[in-house]
Write a protein that binds this DNA or RNA. Structure first.
Lengths: 121, 121
DNA sequence: GAAGCAGAATTACACATGTAATCGACAGGG
DNA sequence: CCCTGTCGATTACATGTGTAATTCTGCTTC
């Protein structure tokens, strides 16, 4: 699967959330703080099309864009990449890292424990 | 903290493992499968110096390079970034993801549970 | 002392990415 | 029917990254 750049990812998020959408709709939904012009969003859309992670269908003289890949799949791939690179593929090492950095609240811990317990059954 | 590119990260790994080292030493220790020439490694070293994540001291007419940032710190930052971007900052969501993808072996689960139990004491 | 070698510094060049502006076609309002 | 606004397509341009080659400079060896 093609790599999706950071900025492009913001566009994908919009379309994973709601699709299909026109370029203008996507632009309207991209987080404000990006400060992107419509032109910029259109560039992103073209590049994502070129990467094959979006498809478009015609709607009059506009296009409606929609993702061709599932968010979970992409997220899984990216997480896997990071875990491989930074933790030698060892998930427990990642969790230990987070723990050492106080990134885990008591609620997080409880939630994860419940989750793991369910896995074992 | 400056962002470190994928390739540059490979150089950092070498120096986190053992420092200080000369450019030639780093080149010798970079994973074979990168297939990098010494020149490429030197470019990486300059860029990392420019980013401030390496420092060098003179040793005769060579340099000895060493990291100025700790591996744990960088890894923590990168993991945080990914968790924020892809899981809305929610660690349990990441774990659920991994679980759903069968990325957790029984041993992993046991290890994580032990880890979490220790945290609560 | 000249020539070559070993290091760093400088330069190169293609592709990715962020961030648009411009161009050409067409549809709808006056 | 023509003008203008709206689309997608094409082009632009700076910076980052992968991957070096070339140059400069000083030590070593004849």
């Amino acid at each position: 699967m093609e790599r999706i750049a950071e900025g492009e990812y913001a566009v994908m998020e919009v379309l994973w959330d709601e699709a299909p959408l026109t370029a203008a709709d996507v632009a309207a939904r991209v987080p404000e703080d990006r400060g992107w012009s419509l032109a910029t969003v259109k560039t992103m859309l073209s590049r994502l099309l070129a990467k094959g992670v979006l498809s478009h269908e015609e709607d009059g003289r506009r296009y409606l864009y929609r993702p061709t890949i599932r968010r979970e799949d992409y997220v899984a791939e990216e997480s896997g990449r990071l875990i491989d690179r930074m933790f030698g593929g060892r998930v427990p090492a990642l969790v230990a890292q987070l723990a050492a950095r106080d990134k885990l609240t008591a609620a997080d811990i409880a939630e994860i424990e419940t989750l793991l317990k369910a896995l074992k059954s």
